[in-house]
Computed example of a mutant assay.
Amino acid sequence: MDALYTAVATANSAGREGRAATSDGRLDLVLAPPRELGGTGEGTNPEQLFAAGYASCFASAVSLVGRQQKVNTSDISITAEVSIGKDDTSFALSVVLRAELPEELDNATGRSLVEQAHQLCPYSKATRGNIPVELVVE
């Protein structure tokens, strides 16, 4: 791969309790485990960051596929639900990607766009075969 851009972020302290910041200073967050995992919930957590990144990247992939097929995707909304839980050995993630379609876009076309975007999205490529990702078209 020829890198076109590299994001650099550093997390300190205990990772889930501390700070995370990007090298350019645009992102600087307090980290805290969610209450559901015994934390204070008074900061963001890696699952939220992953969900935001995946939703954004996937929306971009849907937009690209839409442009290629001359389908207006400007009103499609992508929500990523990232869950963490225990598996046989330690912890694992799963993702549900929800695509909310505008009324004028039929379900079959929307499903096709979402499935094609899932083949193109770098986050989808990185997770494929590693964690379950469910596509939901609403």
Results as ranks from 00 to 15, higher is better:
Pro102Tyr: 04
Leu113Val: 00
Arg98Trp: 09
Val136Arg: 08
Gly110Ile: 03
Glu100Ile: 00
Asp106Ile: 05
Val137Glu: 01
Met1Pro: 11
Pro34His: 09
Gln68Asp: 15
Val82Phe: 02
Asp2Ala: 11
Thr127Asp: 11
Asn72Thr: 03
Gly25Met: 15
Leu93Tyr: 03
Gly18Lys: 15
Gly43Ile: 14
Glu81Val: 00
Thr22His: 02
Thr44Gln: 12
Pro46Glu: 04
His118Asp: 06
Glu81Cys: 00
Gly85His: 02
Tyr5Glu: 03
Gln119Lys: 15
Ala61Tyr: 08
Glu17Trp: 00
Glu81Ala: 01
Arg35Pro: 10
Thr22Phe: 06
Ala7Asp: 07
Glu42His: 10
Pro122Ile: 10
Gln48Thr: 01
Ala3Lys: 03
Ala59Tyr: 00
Thr89Tyr: 04
Asp87Ala: 05
Ser94Lys: 08
Ser124Tyr: 04
Ala32Asp: 13
Ala92Thr: 05
Leu135Tyr: 14
Gly43Ala: 03
Ser63Thr: 14
Thr44Asn: 11
Phe58Ala: 04
Ala59Ser: 13
Ala52Gly: 06
Ala11Gly: 11
Thr89Gln: 14
Glu134Gln: 08
Ile78Glu: 01
Arg128Lys: 12
Ala117Val: 13
Glu81His: 01
Asp2His: 01
Glu103Val: 09
Tyr54Gly: 00
Thr6Gly: 06
Val82Asp: 11
Ala55Cys: 07
Gly53Thr: 08
His118Tyr: 08
Ala117Pro: 15
Ala61Gln: 04
Lys70His: 12
Ala59Asp: 06
Gly25Pro: 14
Asn130Ser: 15
Val133Met: 10
Val114Lys: 08
Ala117Lys: 09
Tyr123Phe: 07
Ser112Tyr: 10
Ala108Phe: 01
Ala99Leu: 06
Glu17Val: 11
Val8Tyr: 14
Ala9Arg: 01
Val95Trp: 04
Pro34Arg: 04
Pro122Leu: 02
Thr127Cys: 05
Leu31Ala: 10
Ala7Glu: 09
Tyr123Met: 09
Gln68Pro: 00
Glu42Gly: 07
Glu138Thr: 11
Arg35Gln: 13
Val30Asn: 07
Arg26Phe: 05
Thr79Glu: 13
Pro33Ala: 15
Asp106Val: 06
Ile131Asn: 13
Ser112Cys: 13
Ser63Leu: 03
Gly66Pro: 10
Gln116Tyr: 02
Ser124Met: 01
Gly129Gln: 10
Thr6Arg: 14
Asp88Gly: 04
Val133His: 01
